[in-house]
Amino acid sequence: MQLSHARRNSLITGVATLVVASAATAALAIPQVGNTTVDAAPVAAVSVDGKPAADQAPADTAAAAAAQQAAQDAQAAEAKAQADAAAQAAQAEAEAKAQADAKAKADADAAASRSQERRNLNTGFSGTPQQIAAQIVPAGQLQCFSNIVFHESSWNPLAVNASSGAYGLVQALPGSKMASAGADWRTNPATQIKWGLDYMNSRYGSPCAAWSFWQSHHWY
């Protein structure tokens, strides 16, 4: 069958149009290398120090926990130091109290001993002042006691120091001090010896210690 010239031209035009349309559709399906925009792949958020934010959160938590633990350790150390200091202070106070108690007891015992010694001396004595002294003064201290009395009064119970007014065997100053040993202190050698022995024990610890002091100073 033969087509007319006009119909053949129309058919050719339609085929050409279809080919052009197909080519355009294919072109749109091919990615363009030039100015075509390509969506970027998602990128993980980054923190200021260059580490991913997701990784930084656990690190911050660990640092906070470490800081808290350090603070707790410091508080515990301070509390222990305070407890140790308090314990040391309490121990020092206890030791000081024990020493004070021991000293007080020793002083009380010494005072009781002297009191007992005075009570033991409240008996009648006879003989010369030297003989009375031998009955009153402990044997181990008698020679030292005698040395002092000899140098102070030459064993005269009525001796008076013209310069100072010291009186009696042991030259008490003033002589009225010896009244603590007895009202007859002016004339009774035993009373004077009792007072002199108590004075030497109280001030020096013993007549021999008093004599040692006397030898260095020529007074006691």
Rank of each mutant, 00 (worst) to 15 (best):
L3C: 07
H5R: 11
H5D: 13
R8V: 12
I12V: 13
I12R: 11
I12Y: 03
I12F: 05
T17I: 13
V19A: 15
A23D: 05
A23R: 01
A24S: 09
T25K: 01
A27F: 09
L28V: 15
A29W: 04
A29M: 10
Q32M: 05
Q32F: 05
V33L: 08
G34K: 14
G34N: 13
G34F: 08
G34E: 09
T36E: 14
T36M: 13
D39V: 06
V43L: 07
A44G: 04
D49A: 11
D49P: 04
G50C: 06
A54R: 10
Q56C: 00
Q56P: 01
P58S: 08
D60F: 09
A62C: 03
A63N: 07
A67G: 06
Q68I: 09
Q69R: 15
Q69G: 13
D73K: 10
Q75V: 15
Q75T: 15
A77P: 08
E78L: 12
A79C: 07
Q82F: 01
A83V: 10
A85T: 15
A90L: 12
A90W: 10
Q91G: 00
A92C: 01
A92Q: 13
E95H: 00
A98D: 10
Q99P: 01
D101A: 11
A102S: 15
K103Q: 15
K103A: 15
A104N: 09
A108H: 11
A111G: 01
Q116R: 11
E117L: 14
N120M: 05
N122R: 09
N122C: 03
S126A: 13
S126K: 14
T128A: 04
T128I: 08
P129A: 02
I132C: 07
A134D: 04
I136V: 12
V137F: 06
G140C: 03
Q141L: 07
L142F: 12
C144L: 02
C144E: 01
F145M: 05
N147T: 00
F150D: 08
H151N: 13
E152W: 06
S153C: 06
L158W: 00
L158F: 06
A159D: 03
V160H: 12
N161L: 12
S163W: 06
S164P: 14
S164C: 13
S164E: 11
Y167H: 12
Y167M: 09
G168M: 10
S176T: 08
K177A: 06
M178I: 02
A179S: 06
A181T: 05
G182Q: 06
A183T: 09
W185S: 00
R186E: 04
T187R: 09
P189H: 04
T191C: 05
Q192G: 12
K194N: 06
G196K: 05
Y199R: 00
G205L: 01
W211N: 10
W211Q: 09
S212D: 15
Q215H: 04
S216N: 11
S216R: 14
H217V: 14
H218I: 06
H218S: 13
